[in-house]
Design a protein around this nucleic acid. Structure first.
Length: 274
DNA sequence: CAAAGCTCCTGACCGC
DNA sequence: TGCGGTCAGGAGCTTT
Protein backbone atom coordinates (compact mmCIF):
# COMPACT_ATOMS: atom_id res chain seq x y z
CA UNK A 1 0.00 0.00 0.00
CA UNK A 2 1.24 3.43 -0.74
CA UNK A 3 3.20 4.98 2.04
CA UNK A 4 5.52 7.97 1.77
CA UNK A 5 8.05 6.43 -0.64
CA UNK A 6 5.35 5.15 -2.99
CA UNK A 7 3.59 8.50 -3.04
CA UNK A 8 6.90 10.18 -3.69
CA UNK A 9 7.45 7.80 -6.60
CA UNK A 10 4.01 8.57 -7.99
CA UNK A 11 4.70 12.28 -7.66
CA UNK A 12 7.94 11.91 -9.59
CA UNK A 13 6.17 9.92 -12.26
CA UNK A 14 3.30 12.35 -12.67
CA UNK A 15 5.21 15.62 -12.49
CA UNK A 16 6.70 15.40 -16.00
CA UNK A 17 3.27 14.97 -17.61
CA UNK A 18 1.26 17.27 -15.38
CA UNK A 19 3.33 20.19 -14.22
CA UNK A 20 2.91 23.27 -16.35
CA UNK A 21 0.05 21.61 -18.26
CA UNK A 22 -3.52 22.73 -18.62
CA UNK A 23 -6.35 20.39 -17.67
CA UNK A 24 -8.11 19.78 -20.95
CA UNK A 25 -10.65 17.29 -19.71
CA UNK A 26 -11.64 15.49 -16.54
CA UNK A 27 -13.86 12.41 -16.55
CA UNK A 28 -15.45 11.13 -13.38
CA UNK A 29 -16.80 7.61 -13.60
CA UNK A 30 -18.59 7.86 -10.29
CA UNK A 31 -19.70 10.52 -7.84
CA UNK A 32 -17.56 9.39 -4.94
CA UNK A 33 -14.70 7.18 -3.90
CA UNK A 34 -14.06 7.38 -0.18
CA UNK A 35 -15.72 10.80 -0.11
CA UNK A 36 -17.82 12.56 -2.71
CA UNK A 37 -15.78 14.40 -5.31
CA UNK A 38 -15.88 18.18 -4.82
CA UNK A 39 -18.84 19.94 -6.39
CA UNK A 40 -18.21 21.05 -9.97
CA UNK A 41 -14.97 19.08 -9.88
CA UNK A 42 -14.57 19.05 -13.65
CA UNK A 43 -15.34 22.71 -14.27
CA UNK A 44 -13.06 23.81 -11.46
CA UNK A 45 -10.15 21.95 -13.06
CA UNK A 46 -10.63 22.29 -16.80
CA UNK A 47 -8.78 25.29 -18.15
CA UNK A 48 -6.55 25.71 -15.13
CA UNK A 49 -2.82 25.09 -15.21
CA UNK A 50 -1.26 22.67 -12.76
CA UNK A 51 1.60 24.82 -11.57
CA UNK A 52 3.36 22.58 -9.06
CA UNK A 53 2.90 18.96 -8.04
CA UNK A 54 4.30 18.12 -4.66
CA UNK A 55 3.97 15.61 -1.86
CA UNK A 56 3.13 16.21 1.78
CA UNK A 57 3.03 13.07 3.92
CA UNK A 58 0.98 10.62 1.81
CA UNK A 59 -0.86 13.40 0.00
CA UNK A 60 -0.28 14.57 -3.54
CA UNK A 61 -0.77 18.30 -3.76
CA UNK A 62 -1.34 20.11 -7.03
CA UNK A 63 -1.28 23.90 -6.97
CA UNK A 64 -3.55 25.28 -9.66
CA UNK A 65 -3.54 28.57 -11.53
CA UNK A 66 -7.06 29.20 -10.22
CA UNK A 67 -5.65 29.53 -6.73
CA UNK A 68 -7.20 26.29 -5.62
CA UNK A 69 -5.22 23.23 -4.62
CA UNK A 70 -6.07 19.73 -5.71
CA UNK A 71 -5.35 17.33 -2.87
CA UNK A 72 -5.19 13.63 -3.69
CA UNK A 73 -4.80 10.66 -1.40
CA UNK A 74 -4.25 7.11 -2.69
CA UNK A 75 -5.73 5.37 0.32
CA UNK A 76 -4.92 1.68 0.33
CA UNK A 77 -5.09 0.71 -3.28
CA UNK A 78 -5.05 3.87 -5.37
CA UNK A 79 -2.70 4.13 -8.32
CA UNK A 80 -2.11 6.33 -11.31
CA UNK A 81 -1.59 4.98 -14.78
CA UNK A 82 -0.21 7.05 -17.58
CA UNK A 83 -1.50 5.42 -20.69
CA UNK A 84 -4.37 4.52 -22.92
CA UNK A 85 -7.67 4.05 -21.18
CA UNK A 86 -8.66 1.43 -23.70
CA UNK A 87 -7.27 -2.05 -23.73
CA UNK A 88 -6.66 -1.97 -20.05
CA UNK A 89 -6.97 -5.26 -18.29
CA UNK A 90 -9.30 -4.08 -15.57
CA UNK A 91 -10.78 -0.66 -16.25
CA UNK A 92 -13.49 -1.42 -13.72
CA UNK A 93 -11.91 0.73 -11.04
CA UNK A 94 -10.75 3.60 -13.23
CA UNK A 95 -12.56 6.36 -11.37
CA UNK A 96 -10.95 9.53 -12.71
CA UNK A 97 -9.35 10.30 -16.05
CA UNK A 98 -7.36 13.50 -16.49
CA UNK A 99 -6.39 14.73 -19.91
CA UNK A 100 -3.66 17.35 -19.99
CA UNK A 101 -3.38 19.60 -23.04
CA UNK A 102 -0.53 18.53 -25.28
CA UNK A 103 -0.17 15.09 -23.69
CA UNK A 104 -0.98 12.10 -25.86
CA UNK A 105 -2.16 9.76 -23.17
CA UNK A 106 -4.59 10.40 -20.35
CA UNK A 107 -3.77 9.96 -16.69
CA UNK A 108 -5.99 7.40 -15.02
CA UNK A 109 -6.73 7.16 -11.33
CA UNK A 110 -7.60 3.56 -10.45
CA UNK A 111 -8.63 2.48 -6.96
CA UNK A 112 -10.30 -0.91 -6.33
CA UNK A 113 -10.95 -0.40 -2.64
CA UNK A 114 -11.87 3.26 -2.99
CA UNK A 115 -10.11 4.34 0.17
CA UNK A 116 -8.54 7.22 -1.70
CA UNK A 117 -10.04 10.65 -2.20
CA UNK A 118 -9.63 13.96 -3.98
CA UNK A 119 -10.41 17.39 -2.65
CA UNK A 120 -10.14 20.98 -3.76
CA UNK A 121 -8.84 23.47 -1.23
CA UNK A 122 -9.38 27.19 -1.47
CA UNK A 123 -6.56 29.66 -1.30
CA UNK A 124 -4.68 29.58 2.01
CA UNK A 125 -6.71 26.61 3.17
CA UNK A 126 -4.68 23.78 4.64
CA UNK A 127 -7.59 21.43 5.18
CA UNK A 128 -6.35 17.98 6.08
CA UNK A 129 -2.76 19.13 5.88
CA UNK A 130 -3.21 21.35 8.92
CA UNK A 131 -2.59 18.77 11.59
CA UNK A 132 0.23 16.83 10.04
CA UNK A 133 3.47 16.30 11.92
CA UNK A 134 6.93 16.86 10.46
CA UNK A 135 8.05 15.39 7.16
CA UNK A 136 10.39 12.59 8.18
CA UNK A 137 12.96 13.55 5.55
CA UNK A 138 13.00 17.22 6.53
CA UNK A 139 15.19 19.08 8.98
CA UNK A 140 12.23 19.36 11.33
CA UNK A 141 12.42 15.69 12.08
CA UNK A 142 15.13 14.75 14.56
CA UNK A 143 15.64 12.94 17.84
CA UNK A 144 14.72 15.75 20.23
CA UNK A 145 11.60 16.63 18.22
CA UNK A 146 10.42 13.04 18.24
CA UNK A 147 11.21 12.73 21.92
CA UNK A 148 9.10 15.81 22.57
CA UNK A 149 6.20 14.43 20.57
CA UNK A 150 6.29 11.10 22.39
CA UNK A 151 6.61 12.18 25.98
CA UNK A 152 3.28 12.20 27.68
CA UNK A 153 1.96 9.61 25.26
CA UNK A 154 0.88 6.38 26.85
CA UNK A 155 0.14 4.54 23.64
CA UNK A 156 2.69 2.04 22.31
CA UNK A 157 5.41 3.48 20.07
CA UNK A 158 4.07 1.45 17.13
CA UNK A 159 0.71 3.18 17.37
CA UNK A 160 2.26 6.61 17.89
CA UNK A 161 4.39 6.33 14.76
CA UNK A 162 1.27 5.61 12.74
CA UNK A 163 -0.27 8.82 14.07
CA UNK A 164 0.28 11.34 11.28
CA UNK A 165 0.46 14.16 13.83
CA UNK A 166 3.61 12.65 15.34
CA UNK A 167 5.39 12.06 12.05
CA UNK A 168 3.72 12.35 8.67
CA UNK A 169 3.87 9.73 5.97
CA UNK A 170 4.63 6.44 7.68
CA UNK A 171 2.30 3.47 7.35
CA UNK A 172 2.18 0.04 8.88
CA UNK A 173 5.00 -1.48 6.87
CA UNK A 174 7.66 1.15 7.35
CA UNK A 175 6.82 1.58 11.02
CA UNK A 176 7.48 -2.14 11.56
CA UNK A 177 10.68 -1.93 9.58
CA UNK A 178 11.97 1.15 11.40
CA UNK A 179 11.29 -0.24 14.87
CA UNK A 180 12.99 -3.46 13.89
CA UNK A 181 16.10 -1.71 12.60
CA UNK A 182 16.21 0.54 15.65
CA UNK A 183 15.71 -2.51 17.89
CA UNK A 184 12.86 -0.93 19.77
CA UNK A 185 9.88 -3.01 20.82
CA UNK A 186 6.63 -1.96 19.15
CA UNK A 187 4.97 -2.58 22.52
CA UNK A 188 7.09 -0.06 24.41
CA UNK A 189 5.12 2.88 25.72
CA UNK A 190 5.88 6.03 23.75
CA UNK A 191 6.81 7.93 26.90
CA UNK A 192 9.36 5.25 27.74
CA UNK A 193 11.32 5.65 24.54
CA UNK A 194 14.40 7.56 25.63
CA UNK A 195 16.41 10.25 23.86
CA UNK A 196 18.99 7.87 22.46
CA UNK A 197 16.30 5.58 21.11
CA UNK A 198 14.48 8.51 19.51
CA UNK A 199 17.70 9.51 17.84
CA UNK A 200 18.18 5.98 16.54
CA UNK A 201 14.60 5.75 15.43
CA UNK A 202 14.83 8.97 13.43
CA UNK A 203 17.99 7.80 11.75
CA UNK A 204 16.47 4.43 10.85
CA UNK A 205 13.21 5.94 9.60
CA UNK A 206 15.15 8.23 7.30
CA UNK A 207 17.45 5.50 6.06
CA UNK A 208 14.56 3.18 5.33
CA UNK A 209 12.50 5.82 3.54
CA UNK A 210 15.42 6.99 1.47
CA UNK A 211 16.28 3.46 0.47
CA UNK A 212 12.68 2.76 -0.53
CA UNK A 213 12.38 5.95 -2.55
CA UNK A 214 15.58 5.03 -4.29
CA UNK A 215 14.15 1.64 -5.12
CA UNK A 216 11.22 3.37 -6.70
CA UNK A 217 9.01 2.76 -3.76
CA UNK A 218 8.16 -0.66 -2.54
CA UNK A 219 4.77 -2.14 -2.64
CA UNK A 220 2.36 -4.91 -1.96
CA UNK A 221 0.30 -6.69 -4.51
CA UNK A 222 -2.42 -4.12 -5.05
CA UNK A 223 -0.30 -1.10 -5.76
CA UNK A 224 1.54 -0.39 -8.96
CA UNK A 225 4.02 2.29 -9.90
CA UNK A 226 2.91 5.25 -11.88
CA UNK A 227 4.28 3.75 -15.10
CA UNK A 228 2.80 0.36 -14.27
CA UNK A 229 6.27 -1.09 -14.10
CA UNK A 230 6.48 -4.60 -12.75
CA UNK A 231 9.26 -5.98 -10.65
CA UNK A 232 7.89 -3.44 -8.33
CA UNK A 233 6.39 -6.20 -6.26
CA UNK A 234 9.64 -7.98 -5.62
CA UNK A 235 10.57 -5.86 -2.64
CA UNK A 236 11.43 -7.88 0.43
CA UNK A 237 11.04 -6.52 3.89
CA UNK A 238 13.25 -7.43 6.80
CA UNK A 239 10.43 -7.97 9.24
CA UNK A 240 7.07 -7.17 7.65
CA UNK A 241 5.41 -10.38 6.52
CA UNK A 242 8.31 -12.44 7.87
CA UNK A 243 6.41 -14.26 10.59
CA UNK A 244 8.21 -17.35 11.95
CA UNK A 245 11.40 -16.55 10.09
CA UNK A 246 14.61 -16.35 12.06
CA UNK A 247 15.61 -12.82 13.00
CA UNK A 248 18.61 -11.86 10.98
CA UNK A 249 19.86 -9.08 13.17
CA UNK A 250 23.42 -9.86 14.11
CA UNK A 251 23.82 -12.16 17.10
CA UNK A 252 20.08 -12.65 17.44
CA UNK A 253 18.47 -16.08 17.33
CA UNK A 254 14.91 -14.87 17.81
CA UNK A 255 11.95 -15.64 15.62
CA UNK A 256 9.84 -12.97 13.99
CA UNK A 257 6.43 -12.80 15.62
CA UNK A 258 3.18 -11.33 14.46
CA UNK A 259 0.88 -9.59 16.87
CA UNK A 260 -2.08 -7.21 16.66
CA UNK A 261 -1.92 -3.64 17.85
CA UNK A 262 -4.93 -1.38 17.54
CA UNK A 263 -6.30 -3.69 14.90
CA UNK A 264 -3.16 -3.72 12.78
CA UNK A 265 -0.60 -6.44 12.26
CA UNK A 266 2.74 -5.80 13.86
CA UNK A 267 5.77 -7.89 12.95
CA UNK A 268 8.71 -7.81 15.33
CA UNK A 269 11.49 -9.78 16.95
CA UNK A 270 10.57 -10.23 20.61
CA UNK A 271 14.18 -11.04 21.44
CA UNK A 272 16.22 -8.12 20.13
CA UNK A 273 13.62 -5.38 20.01
CA UNK A 274 13.47 -4.06 23.56
C1' DC B 1 -8.00 15.89 26.12
C1' DA B 2 -6.11 10.97 24.73
C1' DA B 3 -6.94 6.51 23.31
C1' DA B 4 -9.52 2.73 21.62
C1' DG B 5 -12.87 0.93 18.50
C1' DC B 6 -15.55 1.03 14.30
C1' DT B 7 -16.10 1.88 9.51
C1' DC B 8 -15.58 2.19 4.60
C1' DC B 9 -14.15 -1.36 0.33
C1' DT B 10 -12.62 -5.23 -2.82
C1' DG B 11 -9.60 -8.90 -3.99
C1' DA B 12 -6.87 -12.62 -2.35
C1' DC B 13 -6.87 -16.53 0.04
C1' DC B 14 -8.48 -20.61 2.67
C1' DG B 15 -11.22 -24.68 3.83
C1' DC B 16 -14.87 -27.51 2.58
C1' DT C 1 -15.65 -25.62 -9.19
C1' DG C 2 -18.07 -22.68 -6.20
C1' DC C 3 -19.10 -20.58 -1.97
C1' DG C 4 -18.85 -18.46 2.37
C1' DG C 5 -15.76 -16.61 5.74
C1' DT C 6 -11.64 -14.00 6.97
C1' DC C 7 -8.11 -10.73 6.31
C1' DA C 8 -5.58 -6.55 4.73
C1' DG C 9 -5.26 -1.43 6.12
C1' DG C 10 -5.45 4.83 6.09
C1' DA C 11 -7.60 7.76 8.49
C1' DG C 12 -11.95 9.98 9.73
C1' DC C 13 -15.41 9.41 12.86
C1' DT C 14 -17.58 7.88 17.22
C1' DT C 15 -17.29 6.24 21.77
C1' DT C 16 -15.10 5.79 26.14
Amino acid sequence: MPELPEVETVKRGLAPVMEGRVFENVVLNRADIRFPFPSNFKSRLVGTTLITLSRRAKFLKADLSSGETLLMHLGMSGSFIIGAARGRENPKHDHVIFTMRGEKTPIIYNDPRRFGFMELLGQDKLGRLANLGPEPLSNNFHGPALYGALRGKKSPIKTALLDQRVVAGLGNIYVCEALYSAKISPLRKSCHVNEAQCERLCTEIQKILERAIKAGGSTLKDFSAVDGSLGYFQHRFKVYGQEANTCHNKDCTGKIARIKQSGRSTFHCPKCQI
